[in-house]
Design a binder for these strands. Sequence first.
DNA 1: TTTATTTAGTTAATATGTTAATCATTAACA
DNA 2: TGTTAATGATTAACATATTAACTAAATAAA
Lengths: 155, 155
Amino acid sequence: MKRLSDSLPMMLYRTLDSVMPNFRRIFAQFGLTEQQWRVLRALWENNSLPLLYLSKATLISSPSLVGVVDRLERDGLVVRERTATDRRIVKVRATAQGMALEDQVTPLVDQAYAVLNQHLSESDWHNLYKGLDSLIQQPQPKEKRAQAKTKGAGR
Amino acid sequence: MKRLSDSLPMMLYRTLDSVMPNFRRIFAQFGLTEQQWRVLRALWENNSLPLLYLSKATLISSPSLVGVVDRLERDGLVVRERTATDRRIVKVRATAQGMALEDQVTPLVDQAYAVLNQHLSESDWHNLYKGLDSLIQQPQPKEKRAQAKTKGAGR
DNA sequence: TTTATTTAGTTAATATGTTAATCATTAACA
DNA sequence: TGTTAATGATTAACATATTAACTAAATAAA
């Protein structure tokens, strides 16, 4: 049987353990966590985003995102804004202070990516992404959707 | 610039998000978390392991592992054993109850892996692992080792 | 329009992840 | 051998992850 250490999940975790510390070290220099950076970067690309979109863009689940945004707000890097048309929606916007971080953090992050890129050839990157993409596209077991309502027959 | 969603970390996280729920669903059927399963599986392969080895085998950091083992012990699945020769070492052993889970969980997990395997061709798997391996082997920034002691010259 | 359903965000409860600091033991050494 | 450094496990402080439940607001349906 395949050894635990060679399973796909373990390989993925090991890769993250190998790659992420380099980036986290950079984020830490600016008092940011990895998740906080992901949120900020999404906001740098889009002025203002609803939490739900932000959740999808950062891959941070809604419950976790609430706390991440709380702390970003506490630190004065973003603000929450209620939407007038649909009052259920809460948009998040980066403050001037939050925006200012982009030019400071981005160069360092880009450089770290550049270093990372050197470790694989062009075709190796292509093949790696191809494999990951296939796994991502893998048909997900359908969410337990609202059951087709059996109208009438109350059983 | 490369979009956030296409960065290597995001691709890795997305892959895990796509793959892991299927396994977690299985673990949950037995009241196990993903990490608890990793510890148990390591113990199934090796009767008894020091926490430090267990940490490396499961990719769970020492501080996290303490809690994972605490809860496994609480649930009667493993026990801690002090080593006589070196009393700093704590070994973890699966109880009969913990051992019994192997034959129940393994078939389901193996099947999940079998399904997963079908999503990529033999060569795609090879290429994927090759890429991940290269990133894992990537030279790590050396730990801040104990500084070469400058004996004498107290500065 | 009244009611049921869906949606966006949040809270709650529990389990981990991350980094730094501590404790008890050993190992190394002057 | 008394002191210092290195180890293995744990604790502390904080930030997330995961799943389920809940609230307010908007929609669809009766």
